[in-house]
Amino acid sequence: MEMKEQLTSLKEEAMKQIKDSHDLKALNQVRIDYLGKKGPITEISKGMKKLPSEEKPVVGAMVNDVRTAITEEMDKQKEELERQALQEQLMSETIDVTLPGTAVAKGQGHVLTQIMEEIEDLFLGMGYQIVEGPEVEEDSYNFERMNLPKDHPARDMQDTFYITDDILLRTQTSPVQARTMDTHDFSKGPLKMISPGKVYRRDNDDATHSHQFHQIEGLVVAENITMADLKGTLEVFAKELFGADREIRLRPSYFPFTEPSVEVDVSCFKCGGKGCSVCKHTGWIEILGAGMVHPNVLEMSGIDTDKYSGFAFGLGPDRVAMLKYGIEDIRRFYQNDIRFLNQFKVKE
């Protein structure tokens, strides 16, 4: 039994040395020391032939167990040491994560385009078409078809750039509506459209006036269109563009191509209606003009006013952007200073 004891103590010793090996080299030395050809375990195996034959299998099994245990322990320790070595190596590769990331060249859509596309997408979702038209228009489409005959006092409301007596830069996107009403086939369904685009007025440029700006107008003509439909549509619109908590109110107004005509206020999106500098302490911001399409306008497009009615609305993306972001000068939109353009990164 001397051998058995010897093996047990050898195993304990080996285990301890394995645990104390702090690198692969030391671990390898332990292997050589215990399991090598000249190691004690090999020695014991060699000495087994001197043993009585009934003890041989017992000691033999024990030798194998010890060998296996040591080998397993060594593998485990080796794995641990490798893990530690890798960890050390990785730690030595540490970078400063606060260094700036590799820049990506990324441009921005113009803030006015962002606002217009947001509105376009909302109305596309409600089954409207986006229709464009000429920026250089005939007087008849820009004014007369909008129920504004020549020498009508309301023409003073819009100073106009004329190219000839009959050709002008459109002052509103409404002529697109007249052109579309002319060609729309009502037997194929209602007309639901929005027309975004540039418009022009004969104005001196300053912080609040620009001779070039943008408009989006909407038009629905169908059977059974009511003013309540207009109100409902504008409510959806206001909530989408300015937030779910927004309310609207209608105030009577005048546009030649609608009757009744209303101006539409949205509860202030800065203060929520309590009153602040943005809403001039009224709690409301004027944002849209709207109304029921004037029967003259429908009739000029050959639409039967006994059967069809419609509503129209319009707003200025420039004004919306100025209010929404507190932009102080309308000329900023057209100077295209990159310090201005590149601010509008957040896609709302």
Binding site: G127, Y128, N224
Partner: peptide, 13 residues
Amino acid sequence: LPSTLPISASHPG
């Protein structure tokens, strides 16, 4: 005035 949305044949935008 009430608030409603136009009721008409729906067609895709």
